[in-house]
């Protein structure tokens, strides 16, 4: 879910999140995760208030933001399709599935379609390795995945 926020709204909600984590040791990652839950990504404007509230440098917060693959610096598409790229899924054709989906959506793995409809992302193991290949569509996990299944799920949620 991506929320378009006005600067005032943004400051307000980040203030809220920071208040919730007051007194928690080492809250930086927790705060960034909470911000992403609220906005769908971590807006650049969030860095300054987070750094200030946690007595960290801007670089510290930016360092955490860029380290973790989950944390986004830009809003994702309206739908997010994650295709497992790890070995158990490779053994069941994940590479081919990824190519099919990339062609279908006309997007490179890791990117969002031009119309903003779909983000196609790699993920490394979803713990569904006995039912590979595995994908998630907007967070819902699927096993024995095919291109058809992904399209069907997207149709159902669109």
């Amino acid at each position: 879910m991506t929320v378009v926020a006005t600067p005032a709204d943004l400051a307000d909600r980040i203030g809220h999140i920071l208040a919730e984590h007051q007194g928690t040791d080492g809250a930086c990652l927790l705060v960034l995760q909470a911000i992403q839950r609220a906005f769908g990504y971590v807006p650049a404007a969030a860095l300054e208030p987070v750094a200030k509230a946690l007595s960290l440098s801007h670089a510290d917060v930016y360092g955490v933001l860029t380290f973790y693959h989950d944390l986004r610096r830009a809003p994702p598409g309206r739908h997010v399709v994650r295709v497992c790229q790890a070995e158990a899924c490779q053994a069941m054709g994940a590479r081919g599935l990824t190519e099919q989906l990339a062609r279908r959506f006309d997007v490179a793995l890791g990117d969002t379609t031009k119309d903003g409809a779909v983000t196609l992302e790699p993920v490394y193991c979803l713990g569904n390795c006995a039912l590979s290949p595995a994908v998630t569509v907007d967070g819902a996990l699927y096993g024995r995945a095919t291109e058809f299944l992904v399209l069907e799920r997207l149709g159902a949620v669109r």
Partner: peptide
């Protein structure tokens, strides 16, 4: 549990 092929913890 990041290893591919493992899901026992989960």
């Amino acid at each position: 549990e990041g290893d591919s092929g493992t899901f026992a913890d989960r």
